[in-house]
Nucleic acid binder design. Structure first.
Lengths: 187, 187
DNA sequence: AATAGGACCATACGATTCGGATCATACGTG
DNA sequence: CACGTATGATCCGAATCGTATGGTCCTATT
């Protein structure tokens, strides 16, 4: 049995929520985990199966209707989760951002294209800020623990940082050099 | 011919650097692009081959020695690059951060484990800040354009934000609720 | 000048992940 | 009931990953 990050997502979510079906996990993940650990939803169907086969989850199949499967932590599963939480990662986040990629190559863009890119990104991040606010609001209702709120706070600040950044770019697009041969340090 | 982000990474980097071998691309990407668009280096060997087959790059093979291949933009390639730069993405960044994932599940952690996690992350991001400073320093020497510097600046600020965040967590770990059944909104 | 060790460079390929296409079930509405 | 829409689950070809591996070049040492 080899673990991957999604294994822990599943174990952790079930730990927090109690017995869950894959679809419930998907919904839960969608408004939280996916913002700092994205993955395709199909894994939330295959992964619990794997974990159940390895004895970390119990599986109960609904007999009629959609044949939903209800998973719950076994002792073994709970132990694995706690075990994982004792080993701390030593890497920074990885990110992928198309817009920044384009910004990096923006020497090949017209100035107005760059401005447009920046404005669009401001919009994108403002929208996301709204989403965060909504979620934060909802969470205040349910009594989610401060610890589960913390990642949202980080997301929030990160998004704010991005907004400031792109606003500056939009307001005052940096000058381009007509991309020459080897000015870019190849060291 | 289907394009993917790495296609544009290759086209763009060669555009900036002029004729390049895959290894040179790898070096260049390592200290810049990889921070906001990570991918395995092996793609920098396979992708140029694909692009050359499609006529977007010219390929020149060194006959003896390491049989390095030197790639350069064709007109078609340069056009494709500019074309791409005119279509702006409308998504925010995707990120993956193990530490935040653990933070999200930290209701299952002892308080001191959480503190340790936070301290470790502070270290990680301080290290990265140093790296950014170095690169910024180097770039000041070579006259990289302001536009190519911009992504670094964003990275810098994002890292600062992370440092502040994790410092707060370390200083004052949020309270945990003994993770119950369904307090977490499943809406 | 021979050799050894380490850095540099390149590639292949099995394993994993992706993500959308698809299908099935339930539910609400008139 | 019939139809449209939301919910729920699964599959599978394609894309990506990432490491193992092997070759080449440099330089220090004797």
């Amino acid at each position: 049995m080899k673990f991957n990050p999604v294994s822990y997502v599943v174990l952790g979510l079930i730990g927090l929520r109690g017995p869950s079906t894959p679809y419930q996990l998907k919904r839960s993940a969608g408004r939280s985990i996916n913002y700092f650990w994205s993955f395709p939803h199909s894994q939330l169907y295959s992964e619990p199966k794997r974990l159940a086969a390895a004895g970390l989850l119990s599986e109960e199949v609904e007999e009629e209707g959609r044949r939903r499967k209800l998973y719950d932590l076994t002792e073994k599963g709970r132990t694995a989760l706690k075990q994982w939480l004792r080993t701390h990662p030593s890497e920074a986040f990885e990110m992928r951002d198309m817009a920044v990629l384009q910004l990096f190559f923006s020497d090949f863009m017209e100035c107005q294209d760059l401005e447009e890119l920046a404005r669009k990104q401001v919009d994108v991040y403002c929208d996301r800020l709204e989403v965060y606010k909504e979620i934060l609001e909802i969470r205040k209702g349910s009594q989610a623990s401060d610890r589960r709120m913390a990642p949202l706070n980080l997301g929030f600040r990160l998004v704010e940082t991005c907004i400031e950044f792109w606003e500056e770019i939009a307001r005052n697009p940096p000058a381009s050099e007509p991309a020459g041969s080897d000015k870019y340090g190849n060291s």
